Simulated scan of single mutants.
Amino acid sequence: MSIEGVDFALRRRTEERDRISDDLLDLDSHPGYQLLKGARLTGETRRRWDGAQAREVTLWWLFDAYRGVLDRARELREGKPDLAALTGLLAGPSVELKPENVPVEKRSLLRAAGEWITLDTVVARMDAAYRDVAETVAAVDAAWSALLPRLDEADAVRRSAADLLRDLDGADPDLERIGAGIDRIRAAVTADPLGSAAPDGTIGGELDGLLADLAARRGLLEQAARIRAEYGDRAHRLGDRIAQVADAENEARSVRDTVLVKIASPALPALPDQAAALRDRLGALDTVGDRWLELVERLTGLERAVDEALARARTATESMAGLIGRRDELRGRLEAYHAKVVRLGHAEDAALGEMYGEARALLWTAPCDLRQATVAIAAYQRAISRIGVAG
């Protein structure tokens, strides 16, 4: 190697050393690396990190050896240049790896002697070790980044729920259970982020379930706070709604009595009778006192029950009133068919007159047999159709 070649090689190697030094410092200052250094790790993360630390030791040893060769080469260059020695340092196998310096995975029981390698080989091995350490740090950091923000969000919701609970002067075992689950998952994620974030693991699904439970619990506490402020008005409105249920049930009974008189053998729905029980439930709310979470469940459950009872009473009324409507609809059809007979000039037709009279008697007799009346009108309609075709 010429003196110019030596100078060029020294400049290139010095730049390379500085670049590697910057990369190593960047790795050391990486937030994920700093967290790993101070964490008590377990499971898959500890296994990966132990291996990465072993390679990091080798990486720094190789870097120190690399710098040592450059320092010796610079000292030789500053004196009377020994081109052969400089060439050997910069281009030849100038770094000795003693057996104890060789990484475990590269050792052999058959090799007792050390190994001499070139600076290029040193850089290649440093690069492989660096990539392995950096990949481990990046994987752990990605796992923490995926899970810890969700846990932080859960803690924020949990604190909000706890504040609501304190305002209500109550206790909530479910909120305590959810909080204990979140604490347990945080401990697992902190100690073994790689195992926790594994696609086939259960942490993600369990965290989803706890977050859903927590959101529901906070919603219930918010509802309890609203009910505490609105309880008097809501209880009053419930009393009004229960009165509507009673009116609707009375109307259903009245319609049922009418149908039983006017319609023969009607198929009637069960008669609704919930108003009295709903009034009792409303009165029982006052016994709950300041147990607001319990009151939420009772009050909202009663509100649903009142809405359902009112809907059932109205549906039953409509169903039973439909039988009277069916009779009236058949009456209208019969009169329309009779008017058609008159228009066709068959008002004096004895057979048609008899069919009309039979159908009319069925429809205007109480109780009315809707099935027989329907059959009679259908027969009357067919007879009119035949006359119309013949005419």
Rank of each mutant, 00 (worst) to 15 (best):
S196E: 11
R107M: 07
S160P: 10
A191Q: 14
R131E: 14
P193F: 05
V122L: 05
G92K: 02
L97D: 01
E153Q: 11
A138C: 07
A146Y: 00
E176V: 14
P103T: 15
L207V: 00
L119F: 03
R111M: 02
P149M: 07
E206Q: 12
V95E: 03
L194M: 11
P199Q: 13
A128S: 13
L109M: 11
A171S: 15
R125A: 03
A198F: 07
K98S: 06
E153M: 00
L175T: 00
D155H: 08
A146K: 10
V123W: 14
R166C: 01
L207F: 06
L175A: 02
D208Y: 02
A198E: 15
A129S: 14
G204C: 01
K106D: 09
I117D: 01
A139E: 12
L89E: 02
S145Y: 05
A139T: 10
S145A: 13
R111N: 07
S94K: 01
R131G: 15
G204P: 03
D174C: 04
A162V: 05
S160V: 04
I182E: 00
R158F: 06
R159I: 05
K106W: 14
T121G: 03
D208T: 10
A188E: 15
D192M: 04
A113S: 10
L148C: 05
D127M: 07
D174L: 15
S94E: 00
K98R: 13
A146N: 02
L97A: 04
L147A: 01
L148S: 03
E105S: 10
D127V: 06
Y130E: 08
D127Y: 08
A124Y: 08
G205A: 14
V102P: 06
A191H: 11
L175S: 00
L194Y: 14
R159M: 08
G179V: 09
S160C: 05
W116Y: 11
D155V: 06
A171P: 02
R107I: 08
D183E: 13
D120H: 09
D127S: 11
K106T: 08
D132P: 00
V122C: 10
A112F: 06
V157P: 01
